[in-house]
Design a protein around this nucleic acid. Structure first.
Lengths: 336, 336
DNA sequence: CTGTTAGCGCATTCAG
DNA sequence: CTGAATGCGCTAACAG
């Protein structure tokens, strides 16, 4: 392995001078810089990050921890975050917690032992508190994306849950719906709580009444909605929902599937709209009405805030960035 | 920061003993092991991977480099690869080359300086050769997934391009198609080359003739297929293709979109089938006939071979694992 | 079974 | 502007 000593010997300088060249120290004469750079190229030298990190206490390594790598919403966040990280000279480690707090915990341990400079995280939920405290205890800066955890203060980049929910409800109300159901994520996750509250508020704004039996709490990755749909359809016609808001793309898609299995036609009998587009690829068979959150920007801005924390250029107070969604109206909410 | 010295002092042993406990060395008495483990827990000690890697020359870090993080085919490979890595005690760094050889090059440099133990890679194409040589020169083991590079020997885990292509063509021939087009990826990528050859062979097997004007070479991420579709439709009816095979999900979806824009009905006027399912989420509006490659298994087995290389338990000769696809027939190839 | 010595590759600190 | 000494946290190789 080629080290700074090898370069130093060949260039007739001290190792320290080589180190200065590598780190773009200004205290180097143009002549020696050029000489050393030539030898570095010639010997195909690559600095050892471990050795560097061991002494300098920084690794230029950040991590993004997401709860579902199969969900295009999160992979798009990853693209944004990675672009910003690379632009700023950081390398990004991507972790997938699979919505499991213990898997997240193992990841945090790995990150701690790998000495990442900071962590961008969409926590699995309020149960993530101990994991985040562990980061805080070790003084590793972290920033929330998409979700935050109650009781811990950090920057947050997310979609605007209140405004987005309001748009979805207003769109459905405009279509004449008066009984709208919400199939939500677990109340242990901040955005599910916010969407629930925003949903109730939005109903009021649209002059509608809230019905407890139309507020369903499930999981963001639950894959069967047959029971829920069956319960809805078993209600008396006047009590039955004519529209459903799904709290994410996965719930939206699987609700559609359950409706289809039960031969309930969409949008004729029930309309469906959801948060986040399920399409990673430009839609070829557009169907589902969605409020698309700006996932790329959420990732990008989250990473930007994280890097500012790492480099100490962030204000002391934590910042909350809420980005607006785009309502994309498609067939699932518009009767022919 | 808590180090092995702090633990050693508190447990009244030498730092070396602590190191042995951490590394599960068998040469430790049960009594001291328990004593040291208690102190480790008490002080909430986490080993420093950098220091460890600096001396032991292994980091337990592997990397997966894929060309498109937005494509569900590759994220599914990532899930499989990560599961295997974590099971084997490795941490996985995910890199996204965006089908750009120079971005891939920068990633390889980062991986080299981060001292990863091995790399699982779907190269951007034959142009990746210098990047891979750089890994080889530094003795970093690597394994190919999905694609390989001509002129460099390494293990490979991929779908069975020959058999998969044959299935797609046979399915279309069974539906009575006699003029089948192939919209392929660049010939600089191994699987595009293989699919092209397999396509020609499959036509012969099905008793059909190959028409050069129906063999199109594009990019795996090209997003407009209007020109190609227009050219097809401009052909005399007898020369016009009645079916299209797309070499990946992205091409398939965007070809459908182009057909739709030109008001060509699918499957009545033209049938479409492609490699890889575009759906990351169980399909809710099934339409496109696909040959779904076992992406999870490709990632899993690729990582398994990589770890065997790293740990020296692999045979000297390189291995090629080809996994069969599943043909999923949907509306885009079956007339009502 | 346990401890001692040495050094991994680099950057910080202090001298020139 | 350049260099020498020192140590980051850990483990290999040897000794007991």
């Amino acid at each position: 392995m080629v080290t700074i000593y090898d370069i130093a010997k060949k260039a007739n300088v001290s190792p320290m001078t080589v180190s200065r060249v590598i780190n773009h120290s200004p205290a180097i004469s143009e002549a020696t810089r050029l000489k050393v750079e030539a030898v570095i190229r010639e010997m195909d030298y690559i600095p050892n990050k471990q050795a560097r990190g061991l002494v300098s206490k920084e690794t230029k390594l950040v991590s993004l921890v997401i709860p579902d790598i199969a969900n295009p919403f999160f992979t798009t966040i990853a693209r944004g975050a990675e672009d910003k990280a690379l632009q700023s000279g950081y390398q990004m480690l991507l972790g997938n917690s699979d919505e499991q707090t213990d898997k997240e915990c193992r990841y945090v341990d790995l990150l701690l032992s790998s000495k990442v400079d900071g962590v961008l995280i969409a926590p699995t939920g309020d149960a993530s508190l101990p994991n985040l405290r562990k980061l805080a205890k070790r003084r590793v800066p972290f920033v929330f994306v998409d979700r935050y955890v109650e009781g811990i203060d950090a920057d947050l980049a997310s979609g605007d849950n209140v405004e987005t929910t309001r748009e979805l409800v207003a769109h459905l109300a405009e279509q004449g719906h008066r009984r709208i159901a919400l199939i939500n994520g677990p109340s242990g996750i901040s955005n599910a709580r916010e969407r629930r509250q925003a949903f109730l508020d939005a109903l009021v704004l649209s002059g509608l009444e809230a019905c407890p039996e139309l507020l369903i709490e499930t999981h963001f990755r639950q894959d069967s909605f047959s029971d829920i749909v069956r319960t809805f359809m078993a209600l008396a016609p006047a009590a039955r929902p004519t529209a459903i808001v799904a709290a994410n793309n996965f719930i939206g898609v699987n609700t559609l599937r359950a409706l289809k299995e039960m031969n309930v036609t969409v949008p004729d009998e029930i309309s469906v709209a959801c948060f986040d587009d399920p399409e990673p690829i430009p839609d070829y068979n557009p169907f589902l009405t969605v409020a698309a959150q700006p996932a790329y920007d959420i990732g990008y801005m989250g990473m930007q805030m994280l890097i500012e924390r790492i480099e100490g250029t962030a204000p002391a107070r934590s910042r909350k960035i809420m980005l607006p969604s785009t309502l994309i109206v498609r067939k699932s909410t518009v009767k022919a």
